[in-house]
């Protein structure tokens, strides 16, 4: 956890106002009581940086998710455009925001239809599934595009693209939506 996160969670515990830091394009956050849960999660800017995206959108946190919203009504659990959710220490993007990341990310690979299907089922990417790329290197955060150039997720590059083993370790794919739904279906309040 970095210094910013520590100071945020501490101030949240005290009930202090979060002071926005606009200087480096970080999101503006104003005080709301339910933001106490923010402590420990990545900021949007921290999440976007590995993709080579420096400018994070201005967003508000509602119910452990980030939203771009004009008006925030008290008690709302969803408002405006959802862009990301907090999941433990990391953020996961919304399906719509993922498409924006896919367009702006520094490194990408395009996978064939079989690779796409396996990927949205939660598998990693093998070199043979990649049909196009812009020369990502080992260690890069890479967005995964399908043949229609739609972003279906992202991962970290583990090995050169010509290897016969897993070359991209899956971090997030759009199938997550279905897996989330199945998980929540089991929960009864």
């Amino acid at each position: 956890m970095n210094k910013t996160d520590n100071s945020r969670s501490a101030s949240a515990r005290r009930g202090d106002f979060f002071l926005p830091s606009h200087s480096q394009g970080e999101i503006k956050i104003s005080q709301r009581p339910e933001r106490r849960n923010v402590g420990g999660s990545q900021t949007l800017q921290e999440f976007l940086l590995p993709f080579g995206i420096k400018q994070a959108p201005e967003a508000q946190i509602i119910n452990r998710s980030y939203f771009i919203t004009k008006e925030r009504m008290p008690g709302a659990i969803y408002s405006g455009e959802c862009i990301a959710h907090m999941r433990g220490p990391v953020l996961i993007p919304s399906i719509t925001f993922l498409q924006q990341i896919g367009k702006q990310a520094r490194k990408h690979v395009v996978v064939n239809a079989k690779g796409e299907w396996l990927y949205i089922c939660g598998r990693d990417i093998f070199g043979k599934a990649i049909i196009e790329h812009n020369k990502p290197e080992v260690g890069d955060r890479v967005v995964i595009l399908n043949e229609h150039k739609e972003c279906i997720g992202y991962g970290d590059m583990l090995a050169p693209l010509d290897s016969k083993r897993v070359v991209i370790k899956r971090l997030f794919d759009i199938g997550d939506l279905l897996r989330r739904e199945r998980k929540t279906r089991k929960v009864r309040f």
Binding site: M73, A76, I77, E81, C82, R180
Partner: peptide, 25 residues
């Protein structure tokens, strides 16, 4: 109903709905 909330949130997110505010009440 709280147990029906995740389904609506996921569908709004998936379909790219941006003009809606949801309340559990």
């Amino acid at each position: 109903k709280p147990h029906r909330i995740p389904s609506i949130l996921m569908n709004l997110e998936r379909c790219g709905v941006t003009n809606t505010t949801v309340f559990q009440n």
